[in-house]
């Protein structure tokens, strides 16, 4: 019998390795135009070691991380609560959805000038931006997830004697989880992208600020280290929520993608 071949996970690593080898070779053999200032991969790795050892990278990373965590958590909690209420009570959905539909399309960074004037340039600014970035999509996904729960299941629970609150906790919220997680996962990555942009424009600390300082010093190696950190963190946050979703819904949700 012809079985489908199992594809080994290291197949995904191979292109990365080839890419890094080319990079190293191109930089060492001076194949790139001089004005690109492309350092070899090994030099970038050395520089990242220096940045970690001197504490510069850690310090900036931690301030970005703190902003992301605080902004994301507060935005997510607010989004879950408001979205949950909107999904559950049609009255609230009718009341809030026009306002949310109007505010949702504004890109998070579009709020920056306004917030710089209102909040000033301090720690609250990037947190507020991330809050806005996370709140709307998570709110929207949560409301949609709750509304998509099969009405028949709710009716069945009612004939089985369950009160509304119990139905919400035991049936509606668990079944809305896949949609909720879609929102959380996407916004966890997005929060990193937004914080870097905010730091580049307005904040003197964090990975984004480090990027801008490296640019002014023409330190391509530092820029590349920062980009790698950003890429890794986005990946790690998304994976974390994928893992969490699988833990919570994997037994019954056949679409859980972990």
């Amino acid at each position: 019998m012809n079985r489908p071949k199992k594809i080994k996970p290291w197949w995904g690593i191979l292109p990365v390795a080839i890419f890094l080898a080319f990079w190293e070779a191109a930089a060492r053999l001076n194949l790139m135009p001089g004005h690109l200032f492309l350092p070899p991969f090994s030099v970038v790795m050395q520089e990242s070691y220096h940045l970690i050892a001197s504490g510069v990278l850690i310090e900036n990373f931690l301030s970005s991380l703190a902003r992301v965590v605080i902004g994301f958590c507060s935005g997510a909690i607010a989004g879950l609560i408001i979205g949950g209420l909107m999904g559950w009570k049609e009255v609230l959905n009718k009341a809030f959805s026009p306002m949310i539909s109007l505010l949702y399309p504004i890109p998070a960074l579009g709020w920056l000038p306004l917030l710089m004037l209102w909040i000033g340039i301090n720690e609250a600014l990037p947190i507020a931006i991330i809050f806005i970035c996370c709140f709307f999509p998570i709110c929207y996904n949560t409301a949609a997830g709750i509304k998509s729960v099969d009405r028949n299941l709710i009716q069945a629970a009612r004939t089985l004697g369950a009160a509304d609150f119990r139905i919400m906790i035991t049936i509606v919220l668990p079944l809305a989880l896949p949609a909720v997680f879609t929102g959380l996962r996407l916004e966890a990555g997005m929060a990193w992208k937004v914080v870097i942009a905010a730091e580049m424009v307005a904040i003197p600390t964090g990975i984004g600020a480090l990027l801008m300082r490296a640019e002014s010093l023409i330190r391509v190696d530092i820029i590349l280290v920062c980009l790698m950190v950003l890429s890794f963190m986005c990946f790690f946050f998304e994976r974390f929520f994928l893992y969490l979703e699988d833990k919570l819904t994997g037994q019954w949700n056949q679409h859980a993608g972990y």
Partner: peptide, 11 residues
């Protein structure tokens, strides 16, 4: 009440 689509709780 046995619903037509049974309405078993999938989770």
């Amino acid at each position: 009440y046995l619903f037509q689509d049974l309405a078993l709780f999938p989770h």
